[in-house]
Amino acid sequence: MSTNFETVHDLPESCQQAVYDLILAVADSKHLLGLRYGEWLGAPVLESSIAASAMAQDEFGHSRLFYSLVDDFVQAGLPQRQEVPSEYRNIEVLDQPFESWTDFVAANALVDAALLVQLEAFRNSSLMPLRRFVPKLIQEEVFHLQHAQGWMSLMTNTSEQSRSALQQAIRKIWDPILCWLGKPQSDSEKALLGAGIQDIDSDGLRTRWMEQVGPLVEQGHLDLPVSNDTITGEWILGSSLNWDGWDESFRRASKTGPDAETFAQIECFSTHSYPVGT
């Protein structure tokens, strides 16, 4: 029998911290992804500058909802996060701006897919406020992957240079994104599953992620550690993940957080003196 929780106050104390950590990690990742997308007024076609700006707004809109849950946790007595870069829990690869459009495309595919499968795993969540808004978010997210897919197929079909540049860009961010989906058998994974916050374990999330990313890798003949089992049709990860120094609650290995220029933009929210509320 599973219990549903109407508010974060109702969560059993044993899992509160793990849920809070995950909600904050999603909120920060979406916030930072929004900032990164928003930087691309200079995409190689104007249409993608427009799409990047639209995707940035989606990510902000989603982070706004996750941050409202974070506020509920703080009201329930969990410590408020200090406003310093090292306390941010965004996916590591979002710390700095993407250096090239190729990096944008790689992140557009891999990061958006990771966030999407995490949202999918909340569809039946026992945390009701989360469960209520998640379907709307998933509906809004779908075109992000379509955008990534369009660029990936263009880059893998057009020239060897663009294909190999994309491969390299993906390889660079592959591990931290797969790790971000959670460490198998960790205490936090057990807490999240036990309380019914998400309905699938971290390896299950990775499988779903590979179902999104794998076909793109295969179609583009990209040399990356993922393959499709010809008999079962299942996607299999071809390399083991490195968990050295992994911080389970931050979902990252290094606690550096966003770079100074990025953090300056975030800091405006807490240092301004305008009558704009929050």
């Binding site: 902000f60 809109g61 706004r64 933009q265 929210f269 305008y274 929050t278």
Partner: peptide, 10 residues
Amino acid sequence: RSAPSMNTRL
């Protein structure tokens, strides 16, 4: 870049 809140940035 200096918007004072998530709402104003949006």
